[in-house]
Write a protein that binds this DNA or RNA. Structure first.
Length: 414
RNA sequence: CGGGCUGUAGUAUACCGGUAGUACACGUGCUUUGGGAGCAUGUAGACUGGGUUCGAUUCCCAGCAGCCCGACCA
């Protein structure tokens, strides 16, 4: 991508109404654009990050055997009345059409997926089933805040699993724990993300959250550094610590952001819709459920909170919009040389953002490269040419190194 | 949803009861290229409604919007 053609531009100043680090940097870089409180559009650079995150999650979910589908955002009121959540869920968006008929804008999809599965699940032979989607959710947050960390409209991966027995559910639940672990590792925040015990739903004593340690977090967790297990402050009392064999004195308090959660739903949603199966003995049994969520925008915001410095974002290679940011410092011969390099890198299958802008100072190009945060910065200038090639520097390193083009391609393809 | 703060060009801001200044960005011309360049020049602005006043962007009230604190967050 040629930066001269990119319709977005970087800004020196952050918007006055953004306070959080993730929103400041993402807005300055032109990754996102705020439409209203808690609602953001994703611009070309931001969308590339979001899609990379989406693909990581999709791959890991597929590995567990889950099947992807796509459910509607408009949801029948009757379904929500059946589970009691039409009135109980305070942040449910309700909209009505011109005839006055009310529908919900989906904040989650238990009320949709369970009736769908009623059409297809009738025997123990039909179980287990796991389905997921990556889709926009709507929640009337009374106070949206912290940029991408708490929004009213946001992209979410929600997965629902259906089981004939508690044992089968627990087996899958453990598989999902591993899948989530892999998602955070691949997204570059694994080293700061911990499995955390949290308060559960009505039927389940605990649920699990994945919490990433950052001062920007809204939750307080207590981490046992030896085991890597954390407990949310909201359930710290009681007998949780005893059950886990942890000692309060040994645990360290941290602020953290919830980047995912997994729940044991038991029959909470299968029961209202009478989702049952016939077991081997010919008897009807309720289907057991689990649900598992990851907010993609929140994950993106968390990455920025955790992986950035005072100059800008430091994208992990796995989610960066482009792998290399190629800067041409100068015009004429320098620019022509840079064009050749750009074509060669692209021919080698590399994703390159090429700062080919004319009349932009070297300082501004460097500042933009730091702000936008591609993992590698490659510079072609009079100086680099004199020294025999291209200077390459990793975003997270201070010093670069000048090398011939061939070696650059080799390193970047490694 | 309670409390507080704030609404001025695309962005960030300044001043002011007598119709608004600066910087960035953008346009034009020339000069510049290793850490957000220089000179010249141009375009562009008071959230909405009501009130007070000779006159309101400025003061008052309401609405709307945004942010912060709290409550809430399967």
């Amino acid at each position: 991508m040629r930066q001269s053609k990119l319709f977005t531009r970087t800004k020196k100043e952050a918007p006055a109404d953004e306070v959080s680090r993730n929103a400041e940097l993402l807005a300055r870089g032109g990754f996102i654009h705020k439409e209203m409180s808690g609602v953001y559009s994703f611009l070309p650079l931001g969308l590339r990050v979001l899609k990379n995150i989406e693909n990581i999650i999709r791959e890991e979910m597929n590995k567990t055997g889950a099947q992807e589908l796509f459910m509607s955002s408009f949801q029948p009121k009757e379904n929500w009345e059946k589970t009691g959540r039409w009135s109980a869920m305070t942040d449910l968006f309700k909209v009505s059409d011109s005839s006055g008929r009310e529908v919900a804008l989906g904040p989650t999809h238990e009320e949709i997926i369970v009736p769908i599965l009623k059409n297809y699940v009738s025997s123990y032979k039909d179980l287990p089933v796991a389905v997921y989607q990556i889709q926009n959710k709507f929640r009337m947050e009374l106070r949206a805040k912290s940029g991408l960390l708490r929004g009213r409209e946001f992209l979410m991966k929600d997965l629902y699993s259906f089981h004939a027995s508690q044992e089968d559910f627990e087996n899958y639940y453990e598989i999902m724990k591993g899948a989530y672990r892999s998602v955070y590792e691949r997204a570059g925040i694994g080293h700061l993300t911990y499995l955390t015990f949290a308060s559960g739903g009505t039927f389940s004593k605990y649920s699990h959250e994945f919490q990433t340690i950052t001062p920007a977090g809204e939750d307080t967790i207590y981490l046992d550094e030896d085991s890597g297990i954390a407990v949310n402050k909201e359930v710290l009392g009681g007998d949780v610590l005893d059950q886990l064999g942890l000692k309060k004195e040994k645990m360290v308090e941290h602020r953290a952001i919830e980047v995912g959660n997994i729940f044991d739903l038991k029959t909470k949603y299968s029961a209202p819709f009478n989702l049952v199966f016939t077991d081997e003995k010919g008897e009807k049994q309720p289907v057991l459920m689990g649900c598992y969520g990851i907010g993609l925008g929140r994950l993106m915001g968390t990455i920025v909170e955790v992986l950035s410095d005072d100059k800008g974002i430091i994208w992990p290679e796995s989610v960066a919009p482009y792998r290399v940011h190629l800067l041409s410092l100068g015009e004429g011969e320098i620019l022509r040389e840079a064009e050749k390099v750009y074509e060669k890198l692209r021919a080698g299958g590399l994703e390159v953002l090429f700062d080919d802008r004319a009349g932009v100072s070297a300082g501004e190009k460097f500042a933009d490269a730091d702000l936008l945060g591609m993992p590698y910065r490659a510079v072609i200038s009079e100086r680099s040419m004199k020294e025999g090639g291209i200077e390459i520097k990793k975003r997270n390193q201070e010093k670069g190194e000048v090398m011939p083009l061939g070696k650059l391609v080799e390193i970047l393809n490694a």
